[in-house]
Design a binder for these strands. Structure first.
Lengths: 137, 137
DNA sequence: TCCATAATTAGAATAATTCTAACATAATAA
DNA sequence: TTATTATGTTAGAATTATTCTAATTATGGA
């Protein structure tokens, strides 16, 4: 946690109570909540908290590398504490997200979950944008 | 294309002009448009087309296995023609999506694109839902 | 402590997606 | 073919996740 605070300081992200609450909540388990879920969970503990702050905070924490943004579920964006790289599994019945080991694609059962589809997503800067000096990268 | 029509017939998906137009558009290139983009492209060719139909059609085509739904970009859902499995790359500067070969995670340059982050997503039915007989799976 | 900057807040605005209900079309039965 | 039924299409309204706005408040450094 101390390391994380240092990392935030380096990125000029102020360690406010709201941000620490969000970060601590994400760190508290292998969970993948949406912004709304985080807000509902923390609101009783931090009554002044607003949903906009949760969104702002998540953005700041993602930018600082402390939190991962998951786009596995088209209905909402989910977030997790930034641990070692791993894959994710979304249940198409209940919507639950599970952590998974990274592995090659292919239908199978892994950790008891029936895998029906697999995607691999990369993000970065494309070759066009790498060449165009007008946009800040 | 004939194979695809058969597959649709099997799934009881009627081959309407709107559906064929969407499928043909997706098949016409290695493209990853959003519902809105598909609508704007096809509206001049098919003036009665509505955006709701594009959404309905995409849902039917995804269910039939003819089209893939991509959740790489949190701002919108993208779609592609169902070809052989491959990975995707999202440029964080311009938002363009590129097809990529499947490979192990790790930062690198691939096809000229600078990869900064990688995710692997699986979808299916989780072990809990596999066991619960009340929900239809 | 004071100050400048950055963060928080509530509520309004936006935009992607889904829903609704009327109408149209296609498939099936008679 | 004609009638019947099921399915698909449509426009516009509704919903909902997310972003924006502008006023207020808190933070960290001097």
């Amino acid at each position: 946690m101390e390391k994380m605070l240092e990392r935030l300081r380096e990125k000029k992200v102020k360690a406010t109570p709201q941000r620490l609450a969000v970060l601590e909540y994400l760190r508290s388990g292998y969970i993948h909540p949406s912004a709304e879920e985080i807000y509902k969970k923390l609101k009783p503990l931090c009554p002044s908290l607003s949903l906009a702050t949760v969104y702002n905070t998540l953005e700041a924490l993602v930018d600082a590398g402390a939190v991962n943004r998951l786009t596995i579920d088209a209905r909402r964006t989910n977030y997790e504490y930034g641990r070692a790289p791993h894959a994710h599994f979304l249940c198409r019945v209940c919507g639950e997200i599970y952590d998974m080991p990274i592995r090659r694609a292919g239908a199978a059962v892994l950790r008891g979950h029936k895998i029906e589809k697999t995607w691999q997503y990369h993000q970065g800067v494309c070759r066009k944008c790498l060449k165009s000096p007008q946009k800040k990268i």
